[in-house]
Design a protein around this nucleic acid. Structure first.
Length: 425
RNA sequence: GGAACAGUACUCAAGUGGUGAAGAGGUAUCCCUGCUAAGGAUAUAGGUUGGGUAACUGGCGCGUGGGUUCGAGUCCCACCUGUUCCGCCA
């Protein structure tokens, strides 16, 4: 959500931004918002005036009753009834106009960072940098489920029977590896100064509707029956929810969190769960980073955040690359976003394992996350990034650390979390 | 899950339908005193959203949302949160 003042003062700039995102169909929204804003203020002014008059008259009634002048009081009541008549329609108009304006403002995309490459869709995303050698294995790398099965580490048949497609039993060393990676990632982030948080795994509907649109909610969120609760799709939901409608003290900034949670997703829509295995699933666990900071610091934090993910994967001997989202592929709330992709020796290509986003003040404006600072109040900047999300991450881990005999190397940093084993076999 | 009570400023707290939501502590600034203690004065109801070049000014705002009323912190309903008791429980 951008600042309405931007539309009041510089419509063309907002339109230019929309064009750069190839959303020309949204161009008329800017003029519409401009007009609705004027209209809304007209109604507000009028209705406020009337309410003021009404308040003044009401006060007289009290005095008149005290003086036992009932006749005169009734006369004023009649005047108030007339004002009420007028207010009735006006308030409906005011309400509708404000609502229409807000709906449009939600659709107008955030101003993209000037460094974002211009492109229509994900095919025009730009590789920023490769880290590590995307090496091929001198033998054929099996599908990740096969690697796991060979190590007696997964039971998808039972999971389908018990919970359905999109769930899994991880077992033995693979399950332990899963936990080890989460624990390692947690400590990795704590060592870099992040505050560790375990948030609620369910949130109320008002928080849900704050952090996402109705369409997104319908496609992602599981609802608890007969409760006003939803299972979180990512800990970002409860972590950002923590800040909704709050005024933060400038001296407490930045908030630099790393949160752990299981994540639940319906995955309804475009792709669904069509792929076998643990690539796209209804339930996974994730270590996340969240930063709430001053506007002037958000770019610096953005660089730091994705670098953390890169460093973590490199410490586990997994080659990665960073891929920048082009303007057309960037979600409307984001100002800039970089995906971290891990190398798959089997597919011989990179695949997404994390996503780092700077939402500038758009999310904060939408959720009412403000800062009380020396120079007055302003909206905070918010960022988020994946540290690591297994079991998807296990795909990259297993493929890259696989030996020809089917055993899997455990990188040094992970060994303390795996009972000092150097290998799974 | 059940019952009782509560929610007003940074904290405590008065306020059972009528002008401008008391008071105390705390905090800030100032005064007094050689210093300290004590004392005195002033400011502290946030916030938000309109109008106005501005000085200024209107609306909303007493946990949240509705309702009753000319008028609600105050009455009614629902919800949220907290405390205590009971029940259940890793």
């Amino acid at each position: 959500m951008i600042d309405i003042a931007l539309i009041r003062n510089n419509k063309e700039f907002v339109k230019e931004n929309i064009k750069r995102k190839f959303q020309d169909h949204k161009l008329p929204l800017v003029d519409k918002a401009y007009e609705l804003d004027i209209e809304a203020r007209k109604y507000i002014t009028k209705a406020s005036d009337l309410r003021g008059k009404k308040n003044a008259l009401s006060k007289q009634i009290g005095a008149l009753y005290a003086a036992k002048k009932v006749e005169e009081a009734n006369e004023i009541k009649k005047q108030i009834a007339l004002i009420d008549q007028e207010l009735l329609d006006l308030e409906v108009e005011e309400e509708n106009t404000k609502k229409a304006l807000k709906e449009i403002m939600m659709k107008i995309p955030n101003i993209i960072d000037e460094t974002v490459p211009i492109g229509k869709d994900d095919s025009q995303n730009v590789e920023i940098k490769k880290y590590g050698e995307p090496a091929l294995k001198p033998f054929e790398v099996p599908y990740h489920v096969e690697i796991m099965e060979k190590l007696h580490g997964i039971d998808l048949d039972s999971a389908r029977k018990v919970a359905g497609n999109g769930f899994y039993y991880l077992m033995g060393d693979i399950a332990r590896l899963h936990s080890a990676i989460i624990s390692y990632a947690r400590d990795f982030m704590i060592d870099r100064g992040f505050t560790y948080v375990v948030p609620p795994f369910m949130i109320r509907s008002d928080v849900v509707t704050g952090v996402m649109s109705f369409e997104e909610m319908d496609a992602m969120m599981y609802k608890i029956e007969n409760e006003d609760l939803y299972l979180i799709g990512t800990s970002e939901h409860s972590m950002i929810g923590k800040f909704i409608d709050t005024i933060l003290d400038e001296k407490d900034l930045p908030y630099v969190y790393t949160s752990y949670s299981p994540c639940f997703r319906k995955e309804k829509g475009a792709h669904g769960i069509e792929e076998r295995g643990v690539y796209r699933i209804h339930q996974f666990e994730k270590q996340e980073m969240i930063v709430v900071c001053k506007p002037e610091d958000s770019k610096m934090w953005f660089e730091k955040l994705y670098q953390n993910t890169v460093d973590l994967f490199r410490s586990l001997d997994i080659p990665v690359r960073t891929l920048e989202c082009c303007s057309g592929d960037l979600a409307d709330l984001k100002s800039k976003s970089i995906d971290v992709e891990a190398w798959s020796p089997r597919q011989q290509k990179y695949f997404e394992v994390g996503s780092c986003s700077n939402l500038t003040d758009a999310q904060a404006r939408r959720l009412g996350i403000r800062v009380n600072g020396e120079k007055g109040k302003y909206f905070a900047h918010t960022l988020n990034n994946t540290v690591v999300a297994p079991p998807r991450m296990l795909i990259a881990f297993l493929e890259n650390n696989l030996n020809e005999d089917g055993s899997v190397n455990i990188p040094m940093v992970l060994q303390p979390y795996m009972g000092n084993k150097t290998k799974i076999k």
